[in-house]
Simulated scan of single mutants.
Amino acid sequence: MQALLANDLDLNAIEPRLGAKYSPNLHAYLALERNRNHCRFARVYRDPDGVLWIGFPDDYFFVGARLSSVLVNGSKTQVFAHMRLVHTLVEVEGFWATYVRDGRCAIDVDHTRGFIGDDTRWAVTDERRTCNWCGNATQTMTRWTEAVEKTAWVAEPLPLAA
Rank of each mutant, 00 (worst) to 15 (best):
R128D: 03
F80S: 10
A152H: 07
G19H: 02
E156P: 04
C105T: 00
E146S: 13
A161L: 11
M141S: 10
N12E: 15
A137F: 15
A42G: 07
L4D: 04
I116C: 10
A81V: 05
L32K: 15
A6L: 13
R129C: 06
L67C: 00
R113N: 01
G103S: 03
P157D: 09
G135F: 03
G135K: 02
R40D: 09
A20G: 15
V86K: 14
A97K: 15
A155G: 02
A123C: 11
H38Y: 08
G114F: 05
G103R: 00
G50D: 03
L11W: 03
P157E: 01
G64P: 08
C131Y: 12
K21F: 01
H87C: 09
A42L: 04
T112I: 14
A20H: 13
A81Y: 07
H38S: 06
F61G: 06
H82W: 15
V79T: 09
A20I: 07
P48K: 01
K21R: 10
A31E: 09
A42R: 11
E15G: 02
L158M: 08
W96T: 07
V70S: 07
E146T: 08
P57W: 03
A20P: 06
R40S: 15
R36E: 11
N12V: 06
N136K: 15
R84D: 12
S23Q: 12
A123R: 15
V109S: 15
N25S: 02
S68V: 06
G50R: 03
Q139C: 14
Y22E: 11
D119I: 04
V124Q: 00
F80C: 13
A106G: 03
L52V: 01
R46W: 04
D118C: 13
T88K: 14
P24D: 08
G50C: 00
M141Y: 01
C105V: 01
Q78W: 12
L9R: 09
G103L: 12
G114Q: 09
R36V: 13
E127W: 02
N136F: 03
F80E: 08
V72Q: 14
G117E: 10
E146W: 03
Y29I: 12
T140I: 10
V109L: 12
V92E: 08
A65N: 13
G64D: 06
V109M: 14
D110A: 13
L11T: 12
R143F: 09
A161Y: 10
R36S: 09
G74T: 04
N25K: 10
I116Q: 00
D10N: 09
V51A: 08
A161W: 11
A137V: 08
W96E: 15
P16E: 07
C39Y: 04
A42T: 03
L5E: 11
R46K: 04
E91Y: 01
D102E: 01
F41L: 00
T88Q: 15
L9Q: 03
N12M: 12
L160D: 05
F61N: 09
L11K: 06
G135A: 06
N73L: 14
F56S: 05
G50N: 09
Q78F: 10
A123T: 11
E15W: 10
A31D: 07
V70Y: 03
L67R: 05
E93H: 06
V70E: 01
Q139D: 14
